[in-house]
Design a binder for these strands. Structure first.
Length: 751
DNA sequence: TGTCATCCGTTATAGACAGCATGTC
DNA sequence: CTATAACGGATGACA
């Protein structure tokens, strides 16, 4: 599996014969756009791969993060698009999609149309066809296939960014199945796959019939070391004494700050993230300049709402920011996360302590990286060592291209033995080979169903062929799945998702499940719940519980302190839940807790109260509410088949989840600029429907708390009324707000 | 009596994709 | 096949 890099290059040194961007066989206008970005020379790993890509060859490029592999993919897209081709750029994260979309937008000046389509950011489905280059998440790409979008056949370049994600058991199969489908449907399309350095990238290339390029070269030299008892041992054998401090992290951060550098610390729990950032805050504050701290403080005042009723994490973050440190994890709401990211980029935040969110996510390099923890808890396994690739990704964040001449990354050890082990394994060691996880029963179930629903596979032989085309098929024999394939097909048939009477064919239920993009098991759970549900008897909590019982939702963890309250809720319902699991089991309690949290959310209980009462993070609350919104929507669609009476109620519940509001506010939310807070104020003041707003005058409306005169006028106009006695149309007909964007932004969206 | 240090048992554990229909700089 | 940091309560040392 192991082979030497094909084009070994000494890290950090430019070869004498560097290739210039102007030498690329590429349209002059495109070359100019690249030059305008300040890129004149190609990095060594970019040179050969660019040539291959521009010749239209399938290409696998496996290089460290931040070594400029995106540029190679951009070249492929732009060159093809200028010749009239259509490109699909597949990334694993929505945040990455935004990043790529913005970078690609530079090529708009060439007349290219760039688009983005992810679950929460869409450029309107039928119009996707018009784009020359479209950035999507892997799930979105899969979904386009499931909806049998015709133009996929005409795609000429497919970029798969971060293909090593194939190794991920949850989402990897989606990516490999999507690539396999492309090659099947459209064998002419050029595939450009970008990967981190992995042991078996050559296998990926063989699977994809691609040219293979790999290298350890980085644009900024990376110096790694292991810290033990006040001493740093670098990978090149040199050693250095670190400044003294309270602990290893303290010492290393002090060293970085004294040299004027920013640092990124990776730890393995959210709590550690907060604790560490808090502990570091005074030190960081002492070693930062006062003007930056002042600027940061005023920025924080401007964009982070403080005060009494803010969740505890927010208070904690504000406390850290006062010293110029911050923490970053998925429990933070998106606005706080981007605040931290942005101000680290500006240099105002000097240290971020983060969970792995920042290692795999957007590009946020720092001069110094400290990886504190090399283990992570995994349920059922205890503390397991981190994969080498993950540690490499974290270390790879060290060194900012164009700013730093070098990056430094430190791992921690507590004993001499550990130091040796860490050095061997994580610094000199190679990343694990990636393995297809398509054979895992749950992925097989999903993708076998979608394949059948698309009409691509009607026999078991065709199913085997489909497997043969995947990376799984490359690594294993399709027949090795025989047993699992059998149980999967049996499940799909007995649950009525697939019929086998005349070949393999998806039922209406199976079709909808595949298109709604929910796990077949979720679909079955929701269907059974719908059959049990009754209008009038089934309340929101029970519906939310059904959604929370689904494998598509990871429930909140029930804490010991929740037990009493959960017992109360459960006793109250007394077995009336739509999905009965083993009551009293931990998973059941988690599902009930999740439903209870969501119920509070749609009853406008304050965020801080919910977070404190259930000990959950605001970021998780939002994510759960969003997942529930999606699942409840899907449940509403399934209700059209299984329980029509419930359909409307589910749609309303889905809308309530989106905004976190009671039913009575739904009507007012239709007005732009009116979020949950303003809607509540308006409602309490007696404006219960959009039609009430149309009749109001600006004077009356501005007496409502939180609504000034200007806003009042705007709201009346947007509600379809007339603010000034100019005599517009009368308030008849449906409330169709006039076009034009309100300048209110999402002000009303936030509590 | 109040405060802090220490010990010891208890407690909780990273992350994040997706439908659909319409409307923006 | 399950490890560990962090927390909270109890206890004891000391001013």
């Amino acid at each position: 599996m192991t082979q030497p890099p094909q084009n070994p290059i000494t890290p950090g040194t430019l070869l004498p014969d560097t290739m210039r961007v102007t030498e690329l066989p590429l349209d002059d206008r495109a070359v100019k756009v690249i030059l305008d970005q300040g890129i004149e020379e190609l990095y060594p790993p970019q040179q050969d791969s660019s040539m291959a890509v521009l010749q239209g060859k399938n290409t696998v490029l496996a290089v460290p993060t931040a070594s400029g592999k995106s540029l190679v993919a951009y070249l492929a897209c732009v060159s093809a698009a200028l010749r009239g081709g259509k490109c699909l750029y597949i990334v694993p994260l929505r945040a990455l999609a935004t990043e790529k979309y913005q970078e690609l937008s530079a090529f708009r000046s060439l007349g290219l149309r760039i688009g983005i389509s992810t679950g929460d950011l869409d450029s309107s489905d039928p119009r996707l066809e018009k784009f020359d280059i479209l950035v999507v998440t892997s799930e979105k790409a899969d979904s386009l296939f499931r909806h049998r979008v015709g133009w996929l056949k005409r795609v000429s370049v497919v970029v798969a960014d971060e293909v090593h994600l194939i190794h991920d058991s949850g989402r990897g199969p989606t990516l490999e199945v999507t690539l396999a489908r492309f090659r099947h449907l459209n064998p002419e399309a050029q595939i450009v796959a970008l990967s981190a350095t992995i042991a078996n990238s050559r296998d990926l290339a063989l699977w994809l019939d691609a040219e293979h390029f790999t290298s350890d070269w980085r644009p900024v030299e990376l110096r790694r070391g292991v810290y033990l008892d006040g001493n740093i041992s670098f990978e090149d054998g040199k050693t250095e004494e670190a400044p003294s401090g309270k602990g290893p992290v303290d010492c290393l951060i002090k060293r970085a700050l004294e040299q004027g550098h920013q640092a990124l610390v990776f730890v393995n729990t959210r709590r550690s993230t907060e604790r560490t950032a808090e502990d570091l805050s005074p030190l960081v504050g002492r070693l930062s300049d006062d003007r930056s701290l002042e600027e940061l403080k005023s920025l924080a005042r401007g964009s982070i709402r403080g005060g009494e009723d803010v969740p505890v994490v927010t208070e904690r973050l504000i406390k850290c920011l006062k010293g110029g440190s911050a923490f970053h994890h998925a429990g933070l709401t998106n606005d706080l996360r981007s605040f931290v990211e942005e101000n680290f980029k500006k240099g105002l935040i000097r240290v971020i302590v983060a969970t792995p969110t920042l290692a795999a996510g957007i590009n946020l390099p720092a001069r110094v990286v400290v990886v504190r923890d090399l283990h992570r808890f995994e349920s059922g396994l205890g503390n397991v060592p981190l994969p080498v690739m993950e540690v490499h990704q974290m270390c790879g964040r060290a060194g900012r291209p164009r700013y730093d001449s070098m990056g430094e990354a430190f791992l921690l050890a507590r004993t001499e033995d550990e130091k040796e082990g860490v050095m061997d394994h994580y610094i000199h060691g190679e990343s694990e080979p990636i393995l297809s996880k398509l054979g895992v029963e749950s992925s097989l179930r999903t993708h076998v169903l979608s394949s059948i629903a698309m009409g691509l596979t009607t026999t078991e032989e065709e199913l085997d062929e489909f497997i043969d085309n995947t990376f799984y098929g490359y690594q294993e024999e399709a027949w090795s799945l025989k047993g699992r394939m059998g149980t999967v097909l049996e499940y799909l048939e007995t649950e009525g998702l697939v019929s086998t009477t005349s070949g393999l064919r998806a039922t209406e239920f199976g079709q909808r499940t595949s298109q709604l993009y929910i796990d077949p098991v979720s679909a079955v759970i929701l269907r059974d719940a719908l059959k049990k549900a009754e209008v009038g008897k089934t309340d929101a909590l029970m519906l939310l519980h059904a959604a929370a019982s689904t494998p598509d939702m990871i429930p909140f963890f029930p804490r010991r302190s929740d037990h009493e309250m959960l017992g109360f809720i459960m006793k109250d319902r007394d077995g009336d839940f739509l999905v009965d699991d083993d009551e009293g089991s931990q998973s059941f309690m988690g599902q009930v807790k999740t439903a209870a949290v969501l119920e509070q959310w749609i009853n406008e209980v304050h965020e801080r109260t919910i977070c404190e009462r259930f000990d959950v993070y605001p970021g998780d609350l939002r994510n759960k509410a969003d997942t529930a919104r999606w699942l409840v929507y899907a449940m509403g669609e399934l209700a059209r088949i299984f329980n029509k009476d419930l359909s409307r109620e589910l749609v309303r519940l889905s809308d309530r989840l989106e905004h976190g509001i009671r039913e009575e506010l739904l009507d007012l939310m239709a007005v732009k600029g009116v979020g949950r807070v303003r809607a509540r104020h308006l409602f309490n003041a007696g404006y219960r429907k959009v039609k009430d707003l149309r009749k109001a005058t600006p004077d009356e409306l501005s007496r409502v708390p939180g609504i000034g005169r200007k806003l009042a006028t705007e709201i009346i106009v947007l509600a379809g009324g007339h603010a000034e006695p100019l005599g517009g149309e009368e308030d008849e007909g449906p409330p169709s707000p006039p076009e034009g964007q309100s300048s209110l932004g999402d002000f009303g969206d936030e509590q």
